[in-house]
Design a protein around this nucleic acid. Structure first.
Length: 1021
RNA sequence: GCCUGGGUGGUGGAAUCGGUAUACACGAGGGACUUAAAAUCCCUUGAGAUUUAUCUCGUGCGGGUUCAAGUCCCGCCCCAGGCACCA
């Protein structure tokens, strides 16, 4: 052994500083984004800077991700490992308010502090490409992103009941409300009616869900997302309503339009009018001018005048033949909700179509017809506005040719059609006076969503959410209105206040005077109001099947409502349905034509039946809601919208028209404001800044006002990873070539708490940008890994408990390498771990020991025979790091060091060289500074991270001997060293001949011997 | 209540396919070095018997499958995180 004094002391402060500076100067961690041969994008969730600086949890996550990045770099990849700050948002702003300082100053300080700390951890970040969400050069593109969504119709405003945090004085998305409390400040969240900006994430629900089937993420994260999206398949079913006066008072306005050569006084029109009026609707049927030779424009103007005159709003149209055509055009313009098209003639202008009528009508007539028909229709627009479009066609209608039929079928769904047998054009000459199907469409019905249509026969009552429209609509028919009103008011208040304190006991009240009719058996069943039914899900009303739904069962028990069993368990239970509810699958009973079917079959059959009768249809519902992105705060990117009154007026809108800020005018800079505090009146602080608010309309130049809300910080973080590779482009958000080379992200490591919100939002934004052709992939992260949390002595770290580990102190005391190693060693990366101070001390001792072991190796021995340990170590540590199983990788390394120490005196020169290289390489990802120090002590020229991870010799790993375990009846009785290629018979033989085994086998008969190659042998006696 | 993890020595935690349970550490005990202490090094360390060769019991609890179960199946209990009257 060399003289101890010659070995330099382990001075981590000096070493770590030295290498960090050298790496920086050499730009070791700045891959060429354009020329890289093997790009690898190693991403970690950027932190949001808080006042306290980095948390040890941040350090745990970042250094863990860095181990992987460094490993990949040593495997020859061009690793890009960027970092930035998620600095916009309520969190930072609240802190600034608390200490009474301006957010801008606080942010500047936080940035310096964070970046200093991040440097000290020894990560291989590319510091030339940081992203800070609060800098104009970044949020310019966040605003651009908003406009992309706005222009595609995916960002819209609506008046909505939103979650309002009275303490943060802003709205929160559903996702940010945790058990009725604000995610950031824990105050009780209230409901407030405000106009807000939303992103239409629900349009992407199915895709967000479907892609989960193939993306390579851990199952638990995927399950979380699936649950959040919450898809349910079932049906909507309409239950007609009847009352004691036999007439309903719903106030629908219905317009009936007749066709060519027709009048409002003939055919089905008078009958239908009479019938609908009886149902309480206001029905208008006009005589259109020149019915014999109609001109489209003339009719259209005439009807528009009538609409204005009669102040029609949200009306429905029944249109016959050419009137059907007119109805569709009106629907396009007035965004109508309900349409009934009786034998409408189509929107075809092809010569072929008209050719069919040659000879049937006069040439003049054909001209009239042609002119009337020749129009374009935006089918998508009509469909997206309408909630119900019904076609009623005669089976033998000569005017509805195959071509028209195909046009309809192509654009509308099968369930929108009713075909009447043996009927023609449904006109007067056929004597069509009554169309019973119309009654169903305009009678008052209560629509429900259910996932169990198979239990329809068991629906014994209905329940409405307290907010349901029907309650107010039927006010006059409700006999116990006073009671009902009281309950509704109470329930609404309750949802705003302490719901938590409420018992889970269900409450409700019956609506007297109204009944629902179960469409399968015509039974009249009571209607209740109860707050266990939510207004926001499904249709806000349910059919209650107490026998087979737990909630309904509890409610029925409490209020003694009827319980009808319609599903029989496969294994019959001893308890009756009165004692216990059954919500599983089984065989259908008490259900007429469904009897005997399995529940799944019954679902199919009843849906078909309902669709045939127009009483319901297959439906899918999601729990996912649209993403509310506006915030009434200061510290965020202003939403780049300008409101112009003049443009609004010109286009006949109700108020100002929202117009996007032209791209050349971005960013809309956040103005300097001394007073950035929110006032809490539903408007953001920017509204106080006249200079900011007042602007001119980019379209018409008239005076206009800016939007004063800023966007949710989750928008900032939903796309930051797309920006990193393009930070040097100031003329585009995402450079195509760069993103093609570097994206999607190869490895994304972050906290489990973000498995729903952030990941879902960034997936959504990625899909949108993919649809807009800015990027060529629709899933942002190839691999996501959620790491666990660090606790302190088994408890969550928190300031109030005083058990917070300060990374600065740890780095000062132990150095980055030791802390990095200890954090890796704590436990499984996905599970987190428990920080124990003496554990960190232990790691410091180990690093010190490693230091001396390395430098004391002299190589004056004769050489060690078995060096498998070297190859094995390279192999298993590599495999462990690839699996992100860092704790075992460190353990393996310790074993290796122990082995080196045991044999230290015996290694020869050649072996020492190999061992020293291995010691440096296998620890390098985890403890980069000490590894680099080791490496250069071996007279190397290039950094260890520019070198390849060692390869191991496969043949050298296998030992030629192994320990054969001998069991008797599964109990270990002996172990012997045998040759690796021992034959089974041989093994059987010698295993029975050892002293111990002989003793155990005395007086026993061997019944069976099981041999597991290279492992064990089990003798059964 | 539902979903997802998890329950292994005094502690943090290991253990591909069912195949030697407790790797690697921490802590504790004993010893060496030292005037002494620290540091370092060596030994012991799941529990209980014991003739110190060895035996029995042991992975939250109760059953089962198997030559063999921490691992698979059935039924429970507990802890952590998420969701929570979503029809």
């Amino acid at each position: 052994m060399p003289d101890q004094k010659q070995i330099p002391e382990y001075n981590f402060k000096k070493i770590e500083k030295k290498w960090r500076e050298k790496w920086e100067v050499d730009k070791l961690y700045q891959p060429s984004l354009d020329k890289a041969q093997k790009p690898f994008y190693n991403l970690m969730m950027f932190p949001y800077p808080s006042a306290e600086g980095l948390h040890v949890g941040n350090m745990y996550a970042f250094t863990g991700a860095d181990v992987y990045g460094r490993f990949k770099k040593m495997q020859g990849y061009d690793v890009f490992e960027p970092i930035g700050l998620d600095g916009f948002g309520i969190h930072s702003e609240n802190y600034a308010m608390k200490i009474g300082e301006h957010i801008k100053n606080v942010s500047k300080r936080s940035e310096e502090n964070f970046y200093r700390q991040l440097h000290q951890m020894g990560n291989m970040h590319d510091w030339s490409r940081t992203v800070e969400t609060y800098k104009p050069e970044y949020y310019k593109w966040t605003q651009w992103l908003f406009l992309q969504l706005f222009n595609k119709g995916l960002a819209y405003q609506k008046e909505a009941k939103v979650n309002w945090c009275p303490s943060c004085k802003t709205v929160l998305s559903d996702e940010q409300v945790i058990q009725g409390q604000c995610e950031r400040c824990d105050s009780q969240v209230e409901k407030k009616e405000l106009k807000q900006w939303f992103f239409k994430i629900t349009d992407y629900a199915e895709r967000l869900l479907k892609n989960l089937d193939w993306i390579d993420w851990s199952e638990d994260v995927k399950t979380n997302q699936r649950n959040w999206i919450g898809k349910s398949e079932g049906a909507t079913i309409k239950f007609p309503i009847s009352n004691n006066q036999h007439s309903t008072k719903s106030k629908e306005d219905v317009l009936i339009l007749h066709g060519w050569e027709d009048t409002a006084n003939l055919g089905f029109i008078p009958e239908t009018k009479k019938h609908l009026e009886k149902l309480g609707h206001r029905v208008l049927a006009f005589e259109a001018p020149n019915a014999d030779a109609p001109v489209f424009e003339e009719w259209f103007e005439f009807i528009e005048a009538k609409i204005k005159e009669n102040k029609l709003k949200d009306f429905s149209i029944i249109g016959h033949s050419m009137g059907g055509h007119l109805a569709l055009k009106l629907a396009e313009k007035y965004q109508l909700k309900k349409l009934v098209l009786m034998a409408p003639v189509g929107f075809s202008s092809s010569a072929k179509y008209f050719g069919q009528f040659q000879g049937e009508i006069s040439p003049e007539g054909l001209e009239v017809f042609k002119k009337f028909q020749d129009r374009k229709l935006d089918v998508q627009k009509v469909k997206s506005n309408a909630s119900s479009i019904q076609f009623v066609l005669g089976e033998k209608d000569p005017w509805i040719t195959a071509e028209i039929r195909n046009f309809y079928r192509k654009n509308f769904s099968e369930s929108d059609f009713q075909v009447l047998k043996n009927k023609g054009h449904l006109s007067e000459d056929e004597g069509v006076k009554k169309v019973p199907e119309l009654e169903a469409l305009f009678g008052t019905a209560l629509e429900v969503f259910t996932t169990r249509p198979d239990t329809l026969f068991g629906a014994t009552y209905m329940v409405l959410a307290p907010e349901h429209k029907l309650i107010e609509q039927h006010k006059k028919e409700i006999e116990n209105w006073a009671e009902v009103e009281k309950y509704v008011k109470q329930a609404k208040r309750k949802s705003e206040q302490e719901r938590k304190e409420e018992e889970k006991e269900k409450t409700g009240i019956e609506i007297k005077g109204l009944k629902a009719i179960n469409p399968v058996n015509q039974e009249k069943i009571p209607i209740w109001i109860a707050d266990y039914v939510l207004a926001g899900y499904g249709t806000g009303a349910i059919m209650a099947v107490p026998a087979h739904d737990k909630r309904d069962w509890e409610f029925a028990k409490k209020y003694s409502l009827e319980i009808t069993k319609v599903v029989k368990e496969i294994v019959e239970k001893s308890k009756s349905i009165k004692e216990e509810c059954f919500s599983g699958k089984g065989a259908v009973i008490n259900s007429e034509f469904l009897n005997g079917l399995k529940t799944d079959e019954a679902k199919q059959k009843i849906i078909e039946w309902l669709e045939g009768k127009k009483l319901g249809k297959k439906a899918i519902d999601y729990k996912l809601r649209d993403w509310c992105v506006s915030r009434q705060r200061y510290w965020g990117p202003p939403i780049p919208i300008i409101y112009c009154e003049k443009c609004g007026q010109r286009e006949g809108l109700q108020g100002a028209k929202p117009i996007s800020v032209p791209e050349k005018d971005l960013p809309v800079e956040l103005p300097e404001m001394e007073d950035f505090l929110p006032e809490g009146k539903g408007k953001g602080p920017l509204a106080k800044n006249e200079e900011f608010v007042n602007t001119i309309c980019p379209d018409c130049g008239a005076p206009a006002k800016r939007e004063t809300d800023v966007s949710d910080p989750f928008v900032d973080s939903a796309w930051y990873f797309l920006r990193y590779p393009s930070t040097d482009f100031d003329n585009e958000a995402i450079n195509k070539e760069r993103s093609k080379k570097w994206l999607p992200v190869d490895s994304y490591i972050g906290g489990r708490e973000h498995t729903v919100l952030h990941l879902l939002y960034s997936r959504f934004i990625t899909m949108v940008l993919n649809d807009l052709k800015y990027i060529e992939f629709e899933e942002p992260y190839k691999r996501f890994f959620g790491h666990g949390l660090i606790t302190k002595d088994g408890a969550k770290m928190s300031k109030s408990k005083g058990n917070v580990i300060n990374p600065d102190e740890m780095l000062e005391k132990y150095g980055a390498d030791t802390v990095r190693l200890y954090l890796r060693f704590l436990g499984d990366f996905s599970q987190g771990g428990d920080w124990q101070d003496n554990g960190a001390d232990g790691m410091a001792r180990f690093v010190n020991k490693l230091w001396y072991t390395f430098f004391e190796l002299s190589g004056v021995g004769k050489g060690v025979k078995k060096t498998q340990m070297v190859d094995k170590t390279i192999k298993v540590i590599g495999e462990d790091i690839e699996k992100l199983s860092f704790n075992t990788a460190v353990a393996r390394y310790m074993e290796f060091v122990n082995w080196v120490r045991e044999n230290a005196a015996d290694f020869n020169q050649e072996q020492v060289q190999k061992i020293k290289e291995t010691l440096a390489i296998t620890i390098a990802p985890m403890a980069p500074h000490i590894a680099e120090e080791f490496w250069f002590s071996l007279k190397k020229k290039k950094s260890i991270f520019a070198e390849k991870w060692s390869t191991y010799n496969k043949d050298n790993i296998q030992e030629d001997q192994f320990e054969l375990v001998i069991q008797i009846n599964g109990k270990v009785r002996d172990r012997i060293e045998v040759s690796r290629d021992i034959a089974e018979e041989e093994a059987q033989k010698i295993s029975q001949e050892t002293e111990k085994i002989k003793k155990h086998l005395e007086g026993q008969t061997v019944r069976k011997i099981i041999y597991i190659r290279e492992k064990l042998i089990n003798i059964v006696v």
